[in-house]
């Protein structure tokens, strides 16, 4: 492969990693507050549909993007109600949310199949996009890609430097102690879930507004699950999430290009590459690192005490 192929490959890596990145960042936020939400796929696809419908009805992609966040959060709110108020098991609730979200989006979206909606197109950053190599990779993307990249330091700042973020992490590490210190556990977990749902909705919106401009059933196609896996892969750190999402997108784009160039390897084996690589990198980095940074109270509901 020469540079002529590598530049579009890297650009494609960023693009196909972006929806996963949004969802991964969202799930990091949720899990940092101590809540495991396996319903990312359900929130993503609902967001994708909401974005598509809004863009089609209003013609404003930016508005559609925000609405997608709202709807992602609304589906997330179901998880919050079931797990935070009714102390339901977080694993079942998340899986049920996926089943529900996929069903709902297919059900409501069926009449829209075969239609298109206005969305975001590629945007060249003035001057910067002339840089050979780097320009086309980094500075000729649509605005949502930049949004996702911007989200990474923002989330990091929120979790590390912001008082609310610190409280949210405290709630995820040791809810009893946090409660004793006067932090409302439920409030911060609500923030975590709604924020995560919103970002998952953004990820979905990327699929229906920027990656493609159309709607079909099951548009998310399992990307929510990849996001759940990448959270652990990233050791709950936003920076590593960016790396993981782009790496995953990159390997996916790479195997397609390998086929396009012409190879004798069976496509089933080529498609295994992204998954094999994820495992390999995870194993290697877990082996190297000392601790995994999982929030200590992840998946454990806080019971009301008398």
């Amino acid at each position: 492969m020469n540079t002529e192929l590598i530049v579009p490959l890297l650009a494609a890596a960023i693009q196909s990693g972006t929806p996963i990145l949004y969802a991964t960042l969202g799930e990091i936020l949720t899990e940092k507050s101590g809540v495991l939400n396996l319903g990312v796929e359900g929130m993503m696809i609902t967001g994708a549909l909401a974005a598509f419908v809004t863009a089609q009805a209003t013609g404003h992609p930016a508005l559609a993007f925000l609405v997608a966040g709202l709807f992602g959060a609304a589906i997330g709110a179901i998880h919050a109600i079931v797990c935070l108020w009714f102390l339901g098991n977080q694993v079942v609730s998340g899986l049920a949310l996926t089943i529900f979200g996929l069903g709902l989006a297919d059900y409501l979206g069926t009449p829209l199949i075969g239609q298109t909606a206005p969305g975001f197109n590629k945007l060249a950053v003035p001057l910067l996009h002339y840089i050979p190599g780097l320009g086309p990779i980094l500075f000729q993307q649509d605005i949502l890609v930049y949004g996702a990249i911007l989200m990474v330091p923002l989330l990091w700042l929120f979790l590390e430097k912001c008082r609310w973020g610190l409280n949210l992490r405290a709630v995820g590490e040791n809810p009893e102690a946090a409660a004793a210190a006067g932090i409302s556990v439920l409030r911060y977990r609500w923030i975590g879930i709604l924020g995560g749902g919103c970002l998952a909705g953004f990820g979905g919106a990327y699929l229906s507004l920027a990656y493609t401009h159309l709607w079909t059933n099951g548009l998310s196609a399992g990307r929510g699950w990849i996001a759940v896996a990448l959270v652990i892969f990233a050791f709950w750190r936003p920076g590593r999430a960016l790396l993981g999402a782009y790496l995953f997108g990159g390997v996916m784009a790479f195997q397609l290009r390998l086929q396009a160039v012409g190879t004798h390897l069976p496509s089933s084996l080529l498609l295994m590459l992204p998954y094999l690589l994820t495992v390999a990198v995870l194993v290697f980095s877990s082996w190297k690192s000392k601790q995994a940074d999982a929030p200590a109270a992840l998946g454990v509901n806080m019971e009301p005490n008398d």
Partner: peptide
């Protein structure tokens, strides 16, 4: 068919709650 998914999700969530 999606109606089945909605029903299943709803039943699981309400049983859980």
């Amino acid at each position: 068919a999606a109606f089945g998914g909605i029903m299943e999700g709803m039943i699981l969530l309400t049983v859980l709650a």
